[in-house]
Computed example of a mutant assay.
Amino acid sequence: MILDHKTYELFGKPILQRLKIKAPFSFDFPITDHACFLYMIDGDMKYKYSDRQAILPQKHSLFLNCIHSSKTISSLQPGETKEIMVINFHPDILKQIYSREVPVLLQNLNVPISNQSIEHINSDILIEKYIDGLLFYFQHPTLVNDDILVLKLKEIILLLSQSANAPAVQTIFNQLFSPITYTFKKIIEANIFSQFNIDELAAQHNLSISSFKREFFKNYNDTPANYIKNKRVQKAAELLIVSSQRIKEIAFQCGFNDVANFNKSFKEKYNISPSVYRQSQK
């Protein structure tokens, strides 16, 4: 149940929102085109995404990509009042207010490809003081204008860029400006020859193991272990022909963490050892 909801808009789009909500409540995030900074002013909240959930305590915050659906905030403790501050980051507005100089946080400086869509930010004294400043403007709406809203938007971006969470925040921001590069298959292909295991690949997609396997099968019609092993062995077979590297070096380059495992996988696919395969091809 929403007790109070105040919003300030910038260039026709909501930028700042202050909500007072009485539990129990549940709210599903719509599919949209922006990122959000969600701060718990008072009380705590349960945040659910995919098949996982997180508890957001008072004075903690979440930075999240709102493009993806299946995200819900809720509280099931009857009678409690929660107060939440939401700051929205629209790509077109960010481009407009940073037309001359783009801050580092919004620049694509070798940002790793990742589908990470949420970052939990612990209690931070500078962010807490920033929220206090926003509350002042919600108490004095006659003082608010576009220039103030632009300054407050730039201020929170500056604070996030100086926080310990800056790398994750930059990754999520970058998804807004280059969403096509953040597809499931793009991440798989970018990491297929790395030393990542299935658990780490699932974490790269911000998915649980079970969700990752379901999504993988939907995209590749195969299990992650089998598909990745075959791709690595195929790449190794190519290198055995065109490269003079030692077999051990090729195995590590293709994502295998030990030679014995590589030899076994290679023989399962080609029915001969890597050394015999290399000799036969030459």
Rank of each mutant, 00 (worst) to 15 (best):
K82Y: 05
I84V: 15
M85D: 12
M85E: 11
V86I: 14
N88P: 07
F89Y: 13
H90V: 01
P91Y: 02
P91I: 00
I93V: 11
I93N: 01
I93L: 06
L94T: 05
L94F: 09
K95R: 15
Q96P: 02
Q96W: 07
S99T: 09
E101L: 05
P103L: 02
P103Y: 04
V104W: 02
V104F: 04
L105C: 10
L105S: 04
Q107T: 07
Q107I: 02
Q107E: 11
N108H: 04
L109I: 00
L109H: 01
N110H: 03
V111G: 00
V111N: 00
I113D: 02
S114G: 01
N115M: 12
N115A: 10
Q116H: 09
Q116M: 08
S117G: 05
I118R: 06
I118D: 02
H120A: 14
I121K: 00
I121Q: 00
S123N: 08
S123K: 12
D124E: 11
D124C: 10
I125D: 05
L126F: 09
L126P: 01
E128M: 04
K129E: 12
Y130R: 08
I131S: 01
D132S: 13
G133R: 06
Y137C: 12
Y137E: 07
F138H: 02
Q139D: 11
Q139F: 05
P141D: 04
L143Y: 15
L143G: 08
L143T: 11
L149V: 13
L151G: 10
L151H: 12
K152T: 11
L153R: 05
L153P: 03
K154M: 12
K154F: 06
E155P: 06
I156F: 05
I156M: 11
I156V: 15
I156C: 05
I157M: 07
L160C: 03
L160A: 07
S163V: 13
S163C: 11
S163G: 11
A164D: 06
N165P: 04
A166L: 05
P167H: 03
V169L: 09
Q170L: 01
T171P: 00
T171M: 05
I172E: 03
F173N: 00
N174L: 03
N174D: 10
L176P: 01
S178N: 13
S178M: 10
P179Y: 02
I180A: 13
I180R: 06
T181W: 00
Y182D: 05
F184C: 10
K185V: 15
K186G: 15
K186C: 13
K186Y: 14
I187M: 08
I188D: 01
A190W: 03
N191M: 11
N191H: 12
F193C: 10
S194E: 08
Q195I: 13
Q195E: 14
F196N: 08
N197R: 05
Q204D: 04
N206R: 04
L207K: 07
S208H: 09
S210I: 15
F212K: 08
F212S: 10
K213D: 09
R214I: 15
E215D: 14
E215S: 14
F216H: 03
F216A: 01
F216D: 00
F217K: 14
K218N: 08
K218H: 14
N219I: 14
Y220P: 02
Y220Q: 06
N221H: 14
N221F: 14
D222L: 06
T223Q: 11
T223R: 13
A225N: 14
A225G: 11
N226Y: 12
I228K: 00
